[in-house]
Design a protein around this nucleic acid. Structure first.
Lengths: 142, 142
DNA sequence: ATAATAGTTCAAGTTAACTTGAGGTCAAAT
DNA sequence: ATTTGACCTCAAGTTAACTTGAACTATTAT
């Protein structure tokens, strides 16, 4: 597979793929006789794992360190297991945070619906605030 | 309230608070006679909204644009409502993405538990993969 | 009264994660 | 035969979001 195909399929700029290769994220990436990269299934899988780790909050540098662990083989299995456990915890925390953010956004939506009805923000204080937003409103007030 | 107190309470560096002020995120922040910032409840609330918008995916520049909308008053109510609606959609998408990432991480955890039991990654292919991971494994294989 | 602490501005520095550009090779289409 | 287009390297540039440092003033504690 040529770099342009991978770029299309994975929706990643060619420059990014070359950059990832340059810093060593594709330790087994082959080249043809002219030095052109020849991507295989392995690299596509790696790209998904890279994305997974990135979304879970790892920096590119840390992802590189993970790739290096893989290269070192079976002696690093428990380290890698731990890394994924930590990532799962991180993602769970992140989801919790987003759920709280959602509540604020829903409150704000309610607030601005009311403001839109009234044509002004003045006087919203006097409107009955729905039960479910009372806590959120308080938390915003400090 | 002094800048150091706000920094402590909100767990934000003083330098960041000054930076936010400099770019106009606290349009109503008062100063005392000697030019020292005097934070009020308003600014603490604003900091929470700023964090909310940030977590929801807005850049600082876009947050500044939102603050400017607030400054313009009632004529921008529907724009602001729309902004929060978009943010809510974005957060929902983000949560969906994280839920998928969780599944990959859980599969990887299972994978490395097995590798740990065996002491090697060789031969994991021959182990019965739990039903719930079959799809994920396929998606990683491309 | 004086020393330490905490506040101020403004310009310059930092870091991550790419992106761009110059200069070059090679295969395929006109 | 030459032009087009995809690939290559390597160095330099970009952007966001702060952070740091210098040089200064104000407040507070002893």
């Amino acid at each position: 597979m040529k770099i342009s195909e991978v770029s299309q399929i994975c929706n990643i700029p060619i420059s990014t793929l070359r950059y990832y290769d340059e810093i060593g994220l594709f330790p087994n990436l082959e080249r043809n006789k002219n030095g052109q990269r020849n991507f295989q299934k392995d690299e596509l899988e790696l790209l998904k794992v890279i994305d997974c780790l990135k979304v879970s909050g790892l920096s590119i540098k840390e992802i590189k360190e993970f790739i290096d662990l893989v290269k070192q083989g079976d002696t690093t299995i428990s380290k890698r297991k731990l890394l994924f456990e930590e990532r799962l915890n991180k993602v769970n925390e992140e989801i919790d945070k987003l759920e709280k953010i959602k509540e604020i956004l829903e409150y704000k939506q309610w607030y601005y619906s009311k403001a839109q009805e009234l044509g002004t923000e003045q006087g919203i204080e006097n409107i009955n605030i729905p039960e479910k937003f009372i806590e959120i409103k308080k938390s915003l007030e400090c």
